[in-house]
Amino acid sequence: MDIANALVVFLNFVFIPAAAYGAQLALGALGVTLVYGILRFSNFAHGDTMAFGTGTVILLTWGLQAMGISAGPLPTALIALPFGIALTALLVLGTDRAVYRFYRKQKAAPIILVMASVGVMFVMNGLTRVLIGVDEYRFDDGARFIMDVRTFREMTGLPEGLALRSTQALTVGVALVVMVALFWFLNRTKSGKAMRAYSDNEDLALLSGIDPERVVRLTWIIAAGLATIAGTLYGLDKSFKAFNYFQILLPIFAAAIVGGLGNPLGAIAGGFLVAFSEVAVTYPWVRVVGYLVPGYEPSGLMQLLGTEYKFAVSFVILIVVLLFRPTGLFRGKSV
């Protein structure tokens, strides 16, 4: 039994990719859950907001690169990110002013906001297409690896290698910082608490002197920020293709619902749960098993499902959780 090699293979092919993907999903799900908690509808335009935000970040990155500005070992996109967030936030705030505010004023049923978000989704999809097109782009620059396979082998003498791409480490790092900051904001600051109060009881928040429009604006700004960060990290880690951002909507919704819609902690847990399950179920375990059980040579790949069916995994988790815990994994505290 060769635990060291099995562990290296597991870390390299399952744990590290899943952690990075989980961080991206968690950030996306946080945005969805915030909007659900405070504006009280599921925002179908969230995936396209991510795409638009990432698109602006890429354009800005190209601009910076053309000017010869770089962030050394880090991707240039990190410098562009704050500006991308600002532009996306402006667009989203404009959308709220032009579309959603009208229904809020009327106290319209939330389903109308859902329908409106479908309209916004079309518009944003079109904007992203006009902005950057439908092609696939890679925009990661800077150092490629923190640890590459050869260095690892030389260091440890193991036949199996372990690679840690800088984008993966960056994804997890940035996501952790953003999550801690968001929780600090929601639980410790007056504005954050006002957002939670508004989510709990809109009328009473108003009767406490909380300006509902300010809460809504803050929510949109944070959601735009989360979407842009999640989208940029996803694009750095994999690549940018506008349509993929539309498809990622399903795992993001699944993560948010699994964790209990409206619950930020649940969104994070849901994001990682969905990501780890997706990777674990679609990974061919044959090499890990080969190291753990010497002499055993399975005929197949020991892959539960083809990678094309990763969406099925988030779906099955969703169904199982809904069947056995209809309110999601976490109850109680909500945004």
Binding site: V99, F102, I112, M115, A116, V118, G119, V120, M121, F122, V123, M124, N125, G126, L127, R129, V130, L131, G133, V134
Partner: peptide, 20 residues
């Protein structure tokens, strides 16, 4: 080049205008 993509924006606007 991007003009054909305008139809997405157009459809979104049609939906939003009808809803409004």
């Amino acid at each position: 080049d991007s003009a054909p993509h305008m139809r997405f924006i157009a459809m979104g606007l049609v939906l939003l205008l009808v809803l409004r």
